[in-house]
Design a protein around this nucleic acid. Structure first.
Lengths: 188, 188
DNA sequence: CTCTATATGTCATACTCTGACGCTATTAGT
DNA sequence: ACTAATAGCGTCAGAGTATGACATATAGAG
């Protein structure tokens, strides 16, 4: 195989993060990113489907880990406890990547176009979790609801963890799922 | 006040729906929409922020209705029952708009860019519901979780209602919230 | 009828993204 | 070590999205 191109991809990500931090996402043309990385604008689009996509690189890794974790939960476990356990398995990944993802999270929070893409990525995760549940025999009727609700509960946990890093993510996850159980118990 | 421009806006929407149905969303340039509506491309962007936005016109109406419905629920009602009641109030709006929204829903389902925007609109609804809950004294810690979970539960109900119109939306909503309660009861 | 506010047209332009073609460098095979 | 294949990259062209600036036309208020 010829030259790898992996170095170029990393340089593009590095250049983009720097420029986004300086001028913001919308005010940074792709040409500027490519230029700082020492390549052409065309090369950028050979490494990333579009300008937003480069901010969401770890999502496929997270998805694979989650699907694997769901499959590893002992059989007979109910859907939401299964998903809670799977999310606990991803905690080390989040803790390890925290310093890297923090600036990206802030950038996403203040850029509507990136929020949209972030929501789309979460939807992909929900789909993957739905399939993983159905592979365990969960009824196709409730699998999407469980996957979606668990995803949102975990999202609440991570958001709190970002704002208040003193509480471990494990505890935030348990706390959020506790609140979900209490809130749902009030339904008739 | 001079000419209203309301007729042009409607013509643009009509022309867009026709062209999207014929050639798809991505394959329809804004210029073609404007041309069929008898105006310039520039005028299109004076009526809609971007090409996707025209598919999500009813969202603000739905949002206002939901916020109003949440405020109208008797005090002392718990968050999720409050939101369930609020969503029940929006059922007539959905039933009335069903023939109009059906082609749009199919178009959104098969167009990634529109799915992203749809998710963003749902996020706006969740934010509005969160605020509406907090205005009723719901703890700011659990309001976002309740709003998000209720929104997803309602989304599941509407999706089933679209696929199987024989069951009334009211029943789909109750059924989905029942499933949410059962699923959450299995936690711990 | 005149004035004014608002909608629209016109023109220019920056930016995103894609296709086509050719060049170059790296790697595998001999 | 030499060659050939291949993946990465540059260059060019072009369509489509979206926005700003300025001019024009039209409907309603006085």
């Amino acid at each position: 195989m010829p030259r790898s191109g992996e170095a170029v991809r990393r340089r593009l990500q590095q250049a983009a993060l720097e420029l986004f931090a300086e001028h913001g996402f919308e005010q940074t043309p792709v040409e500027a990113i490519a230029s700082r990385a020492g390549v052409t604008e065309r090369t950028f689009y050979r490494h990333f489907a579009d300008k937003r996509e480069m901010l969401f690189d770890g999502e496929t890794e997270l998805r694979d880990l989650l699907v694997q974790a769901v499959a590893a939960v002992p059989h007979g476990t109910k859907p939401l406890p299964t998903l809670r356990a799977a999310f606990h398995e991803t905690v080390p990944l989040f803790e390890r990547n925290r310093p890297f993802t923090e600036p990206g999270v802030r950038l996403i929070a203040e850029t509507p176009a990136l929020q949209e893409r972030s929501l789309a990525k979460r939807a992909l995760l929900v789909n993957a979790l739905t399939d993983a549940l159905q592979a365990r025999g969960v009824d196709a009727r409730i699998a999407p609801l469980c996957a979606q609700v668990a995803m949102d509960t975990f999202a609440v946990a991570t958001r709190r963890w970002m704002q208040e890093p003193s509480v471990p993510l494990h505890d935030q996850v348990d706390q959020a799922f506790r609140e979900l159980r209490l809130a749902a118990a009030a339904l008739k």
